[in-house]
Amino acid sequence: MSNEATEAFARPRRPHADKRPASIGPTELDWAPGWANRTISGVGDFLDFALRAVALIPHALRSYPSEVFRYAGVLIRGSSLVVLFMLFNLGLEAGLLADTQFRPLGITSLNGAAVSVAIFRGCVQVLLGWVIAAKIGCGLVTEIGAMRINEEVDALEVMGMNPISYLVSTRIMAVVIVSPGLIIMGYWMSFWGPWLVDVPFLGSTSDGAFWNYLFALQNLTDFIIVTIWAVSSIALPTLIGAYFGYTAKGGPVGVGENTAKSMLISMATVSVIATIIIQLAYGVDANSPIGN
């Protein structure tokens, strides 16, 4: 066979190289420093992973419903008590601080209002996000990362199962099922904590005044905003944990490092979300009845 014929029938090495539109350009920014390239490609990888995981939720519900409910049960049994206890503790602290700040001013009857404004609209969501990052996010890195290191994820693919659907989408769906109940019980605990400190222990507020001001400074709009906020504070650490578990490599050390990394990124992300949402929701309009 002549040389020309070989060239004509040879498969091109990069078949789509010339078909790529010019606007996309190179995937690496040559002029940017290394950390910027790493950050951008890491965020891109994460978004790709997260979108695929969310898009596969219907597939997961159709194919592996038992896995969804099994993991929901694991969350309720293993994590919800810790989360609720933490929020109760946050409430105790908030009641104590509100009392120490308001007692010299003589407005301890407004303790419930402080809880409603500061704790219900922010502290609960951020601390919930941090606890979820520690308990559920780290747990996911551990679980999925160990499977990745032991090549069980590859084994799933060999058996013809979609590992993202089976391992990640099912868990995200379980978190979505569990989180509304968890959030509402969390609010409830964070209201009873300050009540316990302010009404029976310190006696600075009457029972009626506490509940009156607590519910006077919140309405349905608040509830919708903070619940959306709380769901996003729960969902993002979960997705970040699943991503770092799924991309673990390099033996046990890699899993340990990825666990620490997921913790770091989740905590910063939850704080950044808090800053953005408080600006969007309460930056201009306070949505409270005093003086209006």
């Binding site: 209002a113 402080a114 404004v117 500061a118 502290c123 951020v126 910063a268 704080s271 808090a274 408080i278």
Partner: peptide, 18 residues
């Protein structure tokens, strides 16, 4: 810095609103 700054910002906004 990011985590602490974000946390304190929303706390400040809540207190200011009040």
């Amino acid at each position: 810095t990011v985590a602490l700054g974000g946390f304190i910002v929303f706390l400040s906004v809540a207190a200011l609103v009040f």
